[in-house]
Amino acid sequence: MKIIISNSSPIPIYEQIKKAIILQIMDGELVENEALPSIRSLAQDIKISVMTIKKAYDELEEEGYIVSIHGKGTFVAPKNTALARENAQKEIEKHICEAIEIANKYEISKKDLLDLIDIFYGSDC
């Protein structure tokens, strides 16, 4: 498992940890049922407060990426494609909203925006 934390980033540290873990689950670097380090040992290794790690783990569990079994530890949850899709959709929605906001600000029409999506879809961006 790799976790790289930026101290200058405005993204809260627990979010950064969450994202790093989600990314690795998606990439298949962390596989189903793989054990994650305990909250305290991860805290020690990356020198981040225990509560911050706990918050990240709690949210990951809530969102279904990991499961914690009392007395045994925390494990990567069985891959749930529906869930992954749903999360991906949420992520896309967020970015579309941002795009629309910018479009509105500079009076770019809906058609122009859709055209842009057409152009970029399929190309490497």
Binding site: P12, I13, Y14, A43, K47, I48, S49, V50, M51, T52, K55
Partner: peptide
């Protein structure tokens, strides 16, 4: 900044802030 779970800020004999690190810095 990183290792504390909770930060208590005291000024002139009184507690001004008593919050978790995340709550404070995020």
């Amino acid at each position: 900044e990183h290792i504390a779970d909770k930060i208590i800020f005291i000024n002139d004999g009184k507690i001004v802030l008593d919050k978790s690190r995340d709550e404070l810095l995020d």
